[in-house]
Design a protein around this nucleic acid. Structure first.
Lengths: 330, 330
DNA sequence: TTGTAAGCGTTATCAC
DNA sequence: GTGATAACGCTTACAA
């Protein structure tokens, strides 16, 4: 009669003719006599034994599992990050539980509670709730949002990215610059992009304007501004830095409708580095966020294997990549 | 002196002055006297008690966790599916462990072994390895790949989608149709898209050609064909059905370079329904896959709460959506 | 080195 | 309906 339930260490011990403790040691890479080790390995593979990681986690309180508390997997940038994070975690021998909050503050808190009860070893979160209640005993890394002291945050160098965008536009010959941004008051990353942009404009002595819309309800609110600054297909600015690639796309679409040509009449730079499909084609010239670096850094800090004290904020360097909305020197 | 370790049922029992079993019953919604229930709930919230789901899973062999074995989170369509699956699982009270295989057969097998040892309640996989060894005792649903008898597969109606594309192009006035496809021999979904397309063309008596490239190494191999069929900016076909939105984009780019205008000279329909960023803008007119339906169906089948016998294959209906590469009637 | 046994937090089977 | 108590599979002192 065949056993219906999965083999346990006890079965392996019996099969190998050794004790339970010896089997355990083998699977934990604790020194064991060679002949014993072989007997155990043979018995294990004969029975098709696998460690029950739930039992192990239960016993050790370490589950080799990390939770991602994530807004969505429909936004490409969040997907890139999630992909890199999951990949990095797996390469370190960790599993990833992914929870999706749909940008909802309450859902964020619920996901956090849920994964806490699931005894994960740590959490990497990209959240919008500034009052998130996080268990101080649970290792926690925040991506892109520096929402609380004591919680390390890993982000792109948004300020530097803004500077870089301005420098590039100026280098490409633009003389009247414009910043366009949009976002909730909470996520202040786009603010830093603007600040960096403005700082670089001032440093170079190039005039600029900025339009920042607080509400996130669509892109139509930008239209009056665009219309107002267009006369016979001539736009009042020759260089635009948009706080995201998506915004860049939306603005470009509307400029096109007004008869303004990109990049002939006006050059544009976005922010993020979103590719079409999974191709290498950007939607626009852009400041590319260092997705892999962010993931690696976040995982390093979370696992914190050398027990170093954790920084409050790590900003990682961005880079510029041309993507068709600028006139690059040949 | 404050307790450093998380409170357990024993603590709650002591605090409430009831027995361990009673506490357990309360948290498992097993009938318990009202006054007892209240005492327990009060004690639990006072101590901040949460069920240790690892201990529970260890005991019950049910972990309320499902694994996704997924190729990548960099491809938008796979992201849409992953998003819908994770969301559906969460709404059913399940957690999702996401593993990423990067299309690698060996990684697929390793992920499968890993999640098996993690005692997940089931697996939803989108894989490329036709010889995947799957534990028959582990509930398993395959998405889009019907790779083995006994493993239910949930997919779009690819054949119907191909038909629909042909019908639409014909309806829109096209008279010389072309199918373009690309893919490994393994994933035969694009084949069905072609078959459906051809069937509809034949049924309507409209002439068509088809070009299917086996290799997946870039899109350059299509170029000779395009060049060959272009004379002075006139393309030999006036309607193209591409097996994916991505291919549609790549072909369009190359046609543009040849001076062929879309949709003026040639109308194009893709397949998948990929949006730009997280907007509502399609890249092209397309056959939209029913992502939410696929996710819901897959989860239903996996959890199979009514214990019904499982179908080998479920094909879900697709729909057409105009996206700028066709000339819709106004 | 190897074996023995206690115990992790929970559920489930009993008597009461 | 409630309270003891024995598992579940594993790790880890500690004893041999």
């Amino acid at each position: 009669m065949k056993k219906t339930t999965a083999p346990t260490m006890k079965d392996v011990a019996a099969e190998a003719g050794v004790s339970l403790g010896t089997v355990s040691k083998v699977f934990n890479h604790i020194p064991v006599g060679d002949v014993y080790r072989q007997k155990v390995e043979q018995a294990a593979s004969k029975l098709g034994y696998q460690v029950n990681s739930y039992a192990r986690g239960f016993k050790t309180n370490r589950t080799q599992t990390v939770a991602l508390v994530w807004p969505t997997l429909r936004n490409p940038f969040y997907c890139y990050l999630a992909d890199a994070l999951v990949g990095t975690l797996m390469s370190r021998g960790y599993r990833a539980i992914v929870t999706i909050t749909n940008y909802d503050s309450q859902a964020e808190q619920e996901c956090l509670n849920m994964v806490r009860q699931n005894k994960v070893d740590g959490v990497i979160a990209l959240t919008y709730n500034p009052n998130l209640e996080v268990d101080p005993a649970l290792p926690f890394i925040s991506i892109d949002r520096h929402f609380r002291a004591g919680v390390p945050c890993v982000a792109s160098d948004n300020f530097g990215g803004g500077q870089l965008a301005a420098q590039k536009l100026i280098e490409l010959g633009c003389q009247r610059l414009l910043f366009l941004g949009q976002g909730s008051g909470l996520a202040n990353e786009t603010d830093k992009r603007r600040t960096g942009f403005e700082a670089a404009c001032q440093a170079k002595g190039v005039p600029f304007d900025a339009l920042f819309l607080e509400n996130e309800t669509g892109f139509a609110p930008f239209e009056p501004f665009l219309v107002e600054h267009t006369r016979n297909g001539a736009f009042a600015y020759d260089g635009i830095f948009c706080s995201t690639d998506r915004l860049c796309y939306e603005i470009r679409k509307r400029l096109y409708a007004l008869g303004v040509r990109v990049p002939d009449d006006v050059q544009m730079i976005g922010f993020d580095g979103i590719y079409r499909f999974d191709s290498e084609d950007l939607h626009c010239s852009t400041i590319v966020q260092p997705v892999q670096d962010i993931a690696r850094t976040a995982v390093d800090l979370l696992l914190n294997e050398n027990g170093a004290s954790l920084p409050a904020l790590v900003c990682l360097p961005v880079r510029y990549q041309s993507g068709g909305t600028t006139r690059e020197a040949l």
